[in-house]
């Protein structure tokens, strides 16, 4: 593997930037690889968990961003230490393009956080979209770099409460485009609900939805709430507030025809973050359930005349690395349905 490394203690953004240029020149001279030019990713992490984040980023595979700037915060530190690594793929196949990636690790202190923008401004590749991801919170660091970035990558299941999650995502959405991993965790389920009611035979049932239950990993109610928000926004339902009953969250939404009962239930047996299953009932007696199963989602539909049908919606689990990779990919796209879903979700947790 071709690799070009530079490191320096007690350094400065200007010196790091100069070193990056020098490393790029070296890689050009050796014709080692072509630098990718997709996006900049600024990751703000706790120093003690930096390795874990680096591992997560390594596992995102082909969705690796072009230049990753890891700002590792060590509260007592007063100087900057940095390591820059430009590396190519393990094996260069004949006739194929070898695309390199660039990683800069900067050890910084709490005192650097309010002016983190000044630090990273010199390090991002100009004219590429820039994404900030702060998996260990540090909201003040995200705020500091907001003027530089176009996209904020968040996972709103990590906020302490649903209302905190909605409030933070809403505030960030006003400043930048938000890619929310909690939203992406609900994508396959949203696709399946849309597909279920897509055949003309079933589409009329959309207007008769009477009850929707979503089961989720105990830490992921936000993924379910966003799914409810999406249904409200897309189907024109007026969302009402949720209340807690017996460990579950219950709410109602008003559709043109009737009230729709909504229920969020934790599924303690689920190990992976995200959703575990959902069940939909219509006023005409049709019931649909989708549950995680081997090889995809196990689907069951019961029609009003009692006819039962079971099948598997094929698809492999993406895993946490896959979700993060999808988040990075989504930073280059725009989903117009997230913000309306978030607004509706906000109405449910007021």
């Amino acid at each position: 593997m071709a690799e070009f490394v530079w490191s320096e203690q007690d350094t400065s953004p200007g010196r790091i930037e100069a070193a990056l240029r020098e490393l790029l020149q070296q890689s050009y001279a050796e014709d080692a690889f072509v630098p990718a030019r997709v996006l900049n990713l600024i990751a703000v992490v706790d120093r003690e968990w930096r390795g874990e984040v680096e591992n997560r980023l390594e596992r995102v595979g082909r969705y690796h961003p072009s230049r990753t700037i890891i700002c590792s915060i060590d509260p007592g530190r007063t100087t900057l230490d940095a390591v820059a690594v430009l590396s190519g793929p393990d094996a260069k196949k004949a006739g194929e393009l070898a695309i390199g990636s660039e990683t800069v690790q900067v050890e910084c202190g709490q005192e650097h956080v309010p002016r983190l923008d000044a630090l990273v401004d010199a390090l991002v590749v100009t004219d590429l979209p820039t994404v900030v991801w702060s998996p260990h919170r540090h909201p003040e660091a995200v705020d500091a770099v907001l003027p530089l970035v176009q996209v904020v990558l968040i996972d709103s299941i990590e906020e302490p409460t649903l209302s905190d999650a909605v409030a933070r995502a809403t505030r960030l959405s006003e400043e930048a485009y938000v890619v929310d991993l909690a939203w992406l965790r609900s994508t396959p389920w949203r696709e399946r609900i849309a597909a279920t009611f897509d055949p003309p035979l079933w589409r009329g049932e959309l207007g008769k939805l009477a009850k929707v239950t979503v089961r989720h990993h105990p830490d992921s109610p936000m993924a379910g709430l966003l799914l409810f928000g999406w249904l409200c926004a897309r189907l024109g339902w007026q969302p009402g507030s949720f209340v807690e009953q017996n460990g579950s969250l219950h709410g109602r939404a008003s559709s043109r025809r009737q009230e729709v009962a909504l229920c969020l239930e934790a599924e303690p047996r689920q190990s992976a973050p995200g959703l575990a299953g959902l069940a939909v009932e219509t006023a005409s007696g049709m019931r649909l359930s989708l549950d995680r199963g081997p090889g995809g989602l196990s689907a069951t539909r019961a029609t009003s005349d009692g006819r039962l049908s079971e099948w598997t919606v094929l698809g492999a689990s993406r895993g946490e690395a896959g979700i993060l990779g999808e988040g990075i990919r989504q930073a280059l796209l725009r989903d117009p349905t997230y913000r309306p879903a978030l607004a509706a979700a906000g109405a449910m947790v007021q």
Partner: peptide
């Protein structure tokens, strides 16, 4: 189908 908006 109003649910398809925004889906890839």
């Amino acid at each position: 189908n109003p649910l398809v908006e925004g889906l890839e």
